[in-house]
Write a protein that binds this DNA or RNA. Structure first.
Length: 261
DNA sequence: ATGGTTGTTGGACAA
């Protein structure tokens, strides 16, 4: 069995004790981090090495930044999403782990709509679509996990009407997300839990969102057909969101059965 | 409607 977790940690340095503590007790084989908010050289690599993890890190000063941790060696690291070579934002890292291609991605938020941020988000989703198409053509099983900043459907937000015009829930955003799925990818959580409500992965720090359970489901795993065939479970661990100095996101974990040989 | 919060950073900006 392979367990893969994704977690937007909102600064790996400010959150180091929470993150290492959770990894030590959960022990996923692969951990995908987003919003590490530090440069590659400043990533607290040693703290994760002590726990037995290799790391592929794509950092940036102050904002963004992604990482992929793995108990197995990591090879063939891709440190950017192709399609916009001038894009300076550190939002994508992809690598081979075992026989799997795995990506940790931080899709742009896109707010406020009406600024350059929203078209950037849509272009980024186009680029991800192209990347998924290329990976499918390679016929290697893959897992794209991360903070998609996409609310896929009304049941994934506490107040769908209030969020209609938000960049995370606009029709253009959802249409792009569906287009990605229509390539033949499986969104792990909804595939296994078609009826579940209030299965949120993010709660704002403001306005008592956490105690009121005013959440969003925006952290996802998209699986290639070969990976989806092996999908055993997908769970959201609310525990870390309730702790001291919590990130505003909580981890999602998928379990994949070993490949049949 | 506004403001409510957190992180980076030392004033806004991003979320």
């Amino acid at each position: 069995m392979t367990r893969i977790a994704t977690w937007n940690v909102n600064s790996v340095k400010a959150r180091l004790a929470n993150v290492t503590g959770w990894i030590a007790e959960t022990r996923p084989e692969i951990v995908l981090l987003q919003e590490i908010k530090c440069e590659t050289d400043a990533f607290p690599r040693a703290a994760f090495e002590e726990l037995g993890y290799h790391a592929a890190v794509v950092g940036q000063k102050s904002y963004n930044g992604v990482a992929l941790l793995s108990t197995l060696p990591v090879s063939d690291v891709l440190d950017r999403l192709p399609g916009e070579p001038e894009d300076p934002q550190a939002r994508y890292v992809e690598a081979t782990v075992g026989g799997l291609r795995v990506a940790s991605l931080y899709l742009p938020n896109g707010n406020p709509v009406g600024t350059e941020k929203y078209p950037y988000k849509l272009r980024w989703m186009d680029r991800l679509h192209e990347r998924a198409r290329a990976l499918l053509a390679e016929e290697v099983p893959f897992v794209l996990g991360g903070d998609y900043n996409v609310i896929p459907a009304p049941e994934d937000v506490y107040d769908p009407v209030g969020w209609t015009e938000d960049a995370l829930f606009r029709l253009d955003t959802r249409r792009q997300f569906r287009k990605l799925l229509n390539l033949g990818l499986t969104e792990a959580f909804r595939a296994l839990h078609p009826q579940e409500r209030h299965a949120y992965t993010f709660w704002d720090y403001q306005a008592g969102a956490w105690p009121r359970d005013n959440g969003l489901r925006i952290d996802h795993f998209l699986l290639s057909p070969g990976a989806a065939d092996r999908l055993v479970s997908c769970t959201i661990d609310r525990g870390p969101r309730g702790r001291e100095k919590a990130s505003d996101h909580t981890p999602v974990i998928v379990e994949l059965a070993d490949p049949v040989s």
